[in-house]
Design a protein around this nucleic acid. Structure first.
Lengths: 213, 213
DNA sequence: AGTCAATTTAAACAACTGTTTGAAATGTAC
DNA sequence: GTACATTTCAAACAGTTGTTTAAATTGACT
């Protein structure tokens, strides 16, 4: 009984690290099973296929993160006045940082995987995400719209995707950025430092005045 | 004589389209030579290897774009007063749109390729870019620092990377975003529309007030 | 015409991919 | 200990990858 869970978990641990580092399609099952020190066939035995393994890796984090976010969004939505945009964005901070409890560098790994999911595989993962967590996402979009009543919905759509790009890219190159910051500015920045730097940048970008042309 | 250039160009045209659509590593040489209607071996004959083909595809655009940008940056730097941040960012618009002259949807293709370059291949392409165009990049950073005298250099470093993430990610998922925008908002957005939407977002984000904690 | 280099071609190369197979090993319950 | 299901394992599967080879074709110049 423990051996089964051990194998599954060893695979998930190795897979998420390799996926985050080099992408889904660039990571082979032999790399994964090699790092996990399990047999090659065990991936297909426990997860069925590589595609399902990718989903399982993401699910481990999404299943914890999304209900938490959903709860926080509902709380903010129940307040009468529109909420400050920075406040809405700050909702992400704590649930994201709590992913570090699932796994050692969980927060970083999850955000990197999210980025890979958007660029690596086309369509497939996006559909999976929207299908499972579309409702939660809608609540967030509604909150942003309430806090930026001057912006048309289409503009908010674009700016939220711009913001997603910022987050995803920053986390994907997180290691490199940390190294440069340390070398050039004598700065030691951890993941929570990066997230807190992101908030004012994103808030200002999303709420930017409309261009007049 | 004309046959050689035809083959090389047919390969480049097919390669850039496939690379932009599905990424560098996910595109096989057989797909490329199939679409280009040339022999499989001609890629290695004319370009040496797949890696060198990737560089050649990017070089076709970078060789036109970067000198133009460098020139514009120098011009702005020569002015006495610091320049408005939106003005500095707007420098990119015209040179980027001129890439449409090289190739049909040149601007879109190039920006998608840039995005792929940052997420697909690790290190390798980033080094290539910094090595060839680091000087031009330095001028740009200097311009941004001049236009945001209140921000410490380290903060600008982070925010410029945030911005790079926005651009790269947006272009990498450009097709998907356009489709969603068309379906949800009846919007038809072309590449110049996206670029012009980006400017105010980026300008506001980069110049955001510092967080007070 | 003939000469020589540049280019194209089909075929094969070794290495790698995800997946499947059937036997061996392990665990669980009676 | 026997019976049974779960899990592991080595081996092979068919398919794809980038690259190389050597012969065939094309081009340009005398």
């Amino acid at each position: 009984m423990t051996s089964k869970q051990n194998t599954q978990q060893k695979i998930l641990d190795a897979a998420e690290r390799l996926f985050a580092d080099t992408g889904f399609s660039a990571t082979s099952l032999r790399q994964i099973t090699g790092m996990a020190e399990v047999n090659l066939a065990s991936v297909n035995y426990h997860f069925g296929s590589k595609k399902e393994l990718i989903q399982a890796v993401l699910q481990r984090y999404l299943a914890v993160l999304m209900p938490r976010l959903d709860q926080e969004f509902s709380l903010l939505l129940s307040s009468q006045k529109p909420n400050d945009l920075s406040k809405v964005l700050s909702v992400f901070v704590e649930p994201l940082l709590e992913l570090n409890r699932i796994q050692n560098r969980g927060t970083t790994l999850f955000l990197q995987l999210l980025g890979r999911g958007y660029t690596d595989v086309q369509g497939h993962l996006r559909w999976f995400f929207n299908h499972h967590y579309g409702r939660t996402l809608d609540k967030f979009v509604l909150l942003v719209q309430q806090s930026c009543p001057a912006l048309p919905a289409s503009e908010i759509f674009w700016r939220l995707h711009f913001s997603l790009g910022t987050i995803v890219f920053t986390m994907a190159s997180n290691e490199a950025l940390k190294d440069i910051a340390a070398a050039d500015f004598n700065e030691v920045v951890e993941i929570d430092g990066v997230i807190k730097r992101l908030i004012p940048y994103l808030a200002a970008g999303i709420a930017a005045p409309l261009q007049s042309d």
